[in-house]
Amino acid sequence: MQRLAVFLATVALTGSFAQAQDASPARDVQQVLTSAAADGRFTFILFYRDNGPATQAMLATLQQALTDRDDEATLTYVDVNKRGQKPVIDRFGVGRAPMPLTVAVAPNGAVTGVFARSLTEARVADAFATPNMARCMKSMQEGRLVFVCIGLDDGADVPAGVRDFRTDPEFDGRSDVVAFSAYDPAEKDFLDQLKVDPAALRSPVTAFLAPPAVLVGKFGPAATKNEMAAALHAAGKCCDDPNCKHNHGGQQAKPATSARRNSR
């Protein structure tokens, strides 16, 4: 009886995958991405090499997780064996990745999740980054520094220290600002991740992020450019071990610019 149930489930999943494949085979993934971006929807791309049990399981999880998110997400598929799919495979660098693999792409093009071999609904949910989180991710995926300016009202101000930092010739054009209100309900997840509690917030706060995903520090409105540069300098170190190779020259007495030059 149990075997029969498994068999039926497998048949059902295989059928749904076949239907799903049929639903989008002719559509170029790039078109899907463009269309989803235009609609403000996330795109989940399932890369697979074969239609094995792992692929079936991942597909099932994806479908289950996206059931109630039709307006938020689109699901598409890429058979990595097909030559025509090479541009998208190369774009996401998954040509030799473990399969099956799902890549979550935010409407702004940021990759918000990459899941290989197995997947849970919780992880799919995690991939729905808030709009500002996706902006931060996009910037960092392009190798840029991000100042997340969290204000107490609608129009978050960019602190003077951040403005100074951004106009410093050393960092000119290498950073982005993402500003939003601490009370924006859409950003609750992001604020949670940044450990910013809007209720406890008495003054604006700036979270300074560096690639790949390092929280360099959080600064108050009075923070200076030099304080931020010093924090970035410290983030260039691997750890506090004095023998750490990245710790050489990490003496505070040295001008911060020498280390900053190496940091994006």
């Binding site: 560096a210 790949p212 990245h246």
Partner: peptide
């Protein structure tokens, strides 16, 4: 980056250069 904040790093937190 995609996994940022979801799996907070402990100890080594070096920013890429």
């Amino acid at each position: 980056t995609a996994s940022m904040f979801k799996q907070p790093h402990v100890g080594c937190q070096r920013a890429h250069s």
